[in-house]
């Protein structure tokens, strides 16, 4: 049987970590293919509910990453985010959700190597933990299409 390949979702801010991951690319550093990035303007935009959704939609691990304190493009979004994460982590831990599946990091636009290292590290850890089957999953994708309305304009 093939080794289990975890699915890791990364919520990143546009200005530091997304740019840092761009630098990883321009520097041609290699890392695991398991990560899928969700680009947001700022870590302040990252709703804790999105993290729950990621698990509900089949993520085995989560990375949340943004600008180092003091570097926020919006001056304070990451500070607000940090407070939310503190409480959210405590709550997850209290509820028996394994924090080894949720990783928080600051990766600046200059830390391409750190990004590669972070992804590899998280993927390895989550691979060792195995699939997150314990976490209840959403219904199949088709019915969700209906739940999540589509609006189109021109």
């Amino acid at each position: 049987m093939a080794e289990f390949e975890p699915k890791v979702v990364a919520f990143v801010c546009n200005w530091c970590t997304y740019a840092g991951a761009d630098l990883t690319g321009t520097s041609r550093m290699k890392y695991a293919t398991n990560v899928r990035m969700i680009r947001l303007p700022c870590t302040g935009r990252i709703d804790f509910m999105l993290l729950l959704q990621a698990f509900g939609h089949g993520a085995d691990g989560i990375i949340v990453s943004g600008c180092h304190p003091g570097d926020c493009h919006y001056s304070a979004g990451n500070f607000h985010a940090r407070r939310r994460w503190m409480l959210f982590r405590e709550l997850l831990d209290f509820a028996g959700i394994d924090l080894r599946r949720v990783h928080f990091s600051w990766v600046s636009a200059a830390e391409g190597a750190k990004w590669a290292e972070l992804v590899n590290d998280v993927v390895n850890q989550v691979r060792a933990l195995g699939p997150y089957d314990e976490f209840p999953k959403r219904l199949n994708r088709q019915s969700l299409e209906q739940l999540c309305s589509v609006e189109v304009g021109r």
Partner: peptide, 12 residues
């Protein structure tokens, strides 16, 4: 928007 990000997660 919430819908956009939500949809991104749904498509994972």
């Amino acid at each position: 928007t919430n819908e956009q990000i939500f949809a991104e997660l749904v498509s994972l």
